[in-house]
Amino acid sequence: MDVFMKGLSKAKEGVVAAAEKTKQGVAEAAGKTKEGVLYVGSKTKEGVVHGVATVAEKTKEQVTNVGGAVVTGVTAVAQKTVEGAGSIAAATGFVKKDQLGKNEEGAPQEGILEDMPVDPDNEAYEMPSEEGYQDYEPEA
Score class of each variant (00 low, 15 high):
A89N: 02
T59D: 00
E46L: 04
K34H: 04
A53H: 10
G31I: 04
L8Y: 02
T81I: 06
G14D: 02
T81H: 03
T81R: 03
Q99G: 13
G47I: 08
L8D: 00
G36C: 10
A30L: 14
T44H: 01
M1P: 00
K60H: 05
D119H: 10
H50P: 01
V37G: 01
G84C: 12
A56E: 01
V77S: 02
Q24V: 06
A140C: 13
V77H: 01
V16Y: 13
T22Q: 00
A53R: 05
S9W: 15
E35H: 07
V26M: 15
A27E: 02
Q99N: 08
K58T: 07
G73I: 07
F94Y: 15
A78M: 13
V3T: 00
E105V: 10
M127C: 10
A19S: 02
V16A: 06
A29Y: 14
K96H: 08
T81M: 12
K23N: 01
E46Y: 06
P120G: 10
G7R: 15
F94G: 04
V16D: 01
E105S: 11
K32I: 10
D119K: 02
G67N: 04
L100A: 14
M1A: 00
E130M: 07
P108E: 14
G41P: 00
K97S: 14
Q109I: 13
D115N: 05
V74G: 02
T92P: 04
E105R: 11
K102W: 12
T22W: 15
K58R: 13
K12E: 00
A17R: 07
E28N: 02
G132S: 03
E13C: 04
K23D: 00
K23P: 00
Y125R: 04
F94P: 03
G51L: 11
E110M: 08
G31Y: 11
P120N: 06
N65F: 09
G25Q: 15
K10Q: 05
E139M: 08
Q62L: 08
T72R: 11
D135N: 13
E130D: 07
V55L: 15
H50L: 12
E131P: 13
T92V: 13
V49K: 13
V40L: 14
A19I: 05
Q24M: 15
K43E: 01
V66Q: 01
T75N: 07
E139Q: 04
E137H: 10
E83F: 13
Y39L: 08
G84R: 13
D2E: 01
V63C: 05
A30N: 00
E131I: 12
T22S: 07
N122Y: 09
V55Q: 01
V82I: 06
S42R: 10
D115E: 13
V3D: 01
D135P: 04
F94E: 02
V16W: 13
A56T: 09
G132T: 13
N103H: 08
K60F: 08
T64G: 05
G111Q: 13
G93S: 06
A11S: 02
G47S: 14
K96W: 15
K102E: 13
H50V: 04
E123I: 08
K10G: 01
K45P: 02
Q109C: 07
G84F: 13
P120S: 09
V26P: 00
E114D: 11
T64W: 08
Y136V: 08
G93T: 09
M127A: 03
E35A: 06
D121G: 12
K60L: 09
V74Y: 12
A69T: 06
D121I: 12
E83D: 08
V55R: 01
T81G: 04
E28I: 06
M127E: 13
P108H: 07
K32V: 09
K23A: 07
E139D: 10
D119T: 09
G93I: 08
A124N: 04
E46S: 07
Y39V: 06
E13T: 07
G106H: 11
A27I: 15
A17Q: 11
E13Q: 05
D98M: 06
P120A: 10
K45R: 11
A76V: 09
D2L: 12
Q134W: 13
K43A: 08
G25P: 01
A56I: 15
G84V: 13
G93L: 12
M127Y: 11
A19W: 15
A19H: 05
Q79C: 12
V118E: 12
A19Y: 15
G68A: 07
K23L: 14
S9F: 15
K97H: 13
M5D: 00
D135T: 09
Q62F: 09
I112H: 08
D115C: 07
T33S: 06
G36H: 15
E20G: 02
G25E: 08
A29M: 12
E61L: 07
Q134E: 05
G51P: 01
K10N: 04
D115W: 06
V118H: 07
G7Y: 06
E104R: 14
G51I: 15
T33Q: 00
E131N: 11
T22L: 08
F4V: 01
E131D: 06
V66C: 04
G51S: 03
G93N: 05
E20V: 03
A89R: 07
A107C: 06
G86Y: 13
E139H: 08
S87C: 08
A91Q: 09
T22A: 13
A69G: 06
S87A: 11
L38P: 00
V66N: 02
V82R: 04
K6V: 02
V63Q: 01
V52F: 03
E126W: 04
E28V: 10
E114N: 13
A53V: 13
E57M: 05
L38I: 03
E46W: 04
Y133M: 07
P108N: 10
F94W: 15
S9M: 14
E126P: 09
T64Q: 08
K97M: 06
A30H: 02
V16N: 05
A29L: 07
T72Y: 03
V71L: 09
V63D: 01
L113W: 07
T59I: 03
G7M: 05
I112Q: 07
Q24E: 05
E104G: 13
G41E: 01
V71Q: 04
K43R: 14
G14L: 11
A69H: 08
E13Y: 14
V52A: 09
K58C: 08
D98V: 03
E130N: 13
Q99M: 13
L8A: 01
K96T: 11
A11R: 00
A11F: 12
E28F: 09
E131C: 09
A17P: 00
G67H: 07
Q62E: 03
K23R: 11
A89D: 03
T75P: 01
E114F: 14
M127K: 13
A89P: 03
E123C: 15
P128R: 10
E13D: 04
K10D: 01
E110D: 10
S129G: 09
A91H: 13
Q99L: 13
A17C: 06
A53I: 14
D98T: 12
G47Y: 13
V63H: 01
N103S: 07
V15A: 04
E137W: 05
G93Y: 07
A29F: 13
Q79D: 03
V66R: 04
A17H: 05
A17T: 11
E110T: 14
V70N: 01
E126L: 07
A90E: 06
V3L: 06
L8I: 05
N122Q: 08
V49Q: 09
E104S: 09
A53N: 08
V37T: 01
L38N: 04
V82L: 12
P108T: 11
P138Y: 08
G93D: 06
V70L: 11
P128T: 05
L38M: 12
V63K: 01
A78S: 05
E137I: 04
G36M: 14
A69N: 07
E130K: 08
G25V: 12
A76M: 06
Q109A: 02
V70I: 10
A85V: 11
P138C: 09
L8N: 00
E57S: 04
A11D: 00
K21V: 13
T59N: 01
F4I: 08
F4C: 02
E57P: 02
V48Y: 12
V26E: 00
E105G: 08
G14E: 13
T92S: 11
G25Y: 14
T64H: 12
K10W: 06
I88G: 04
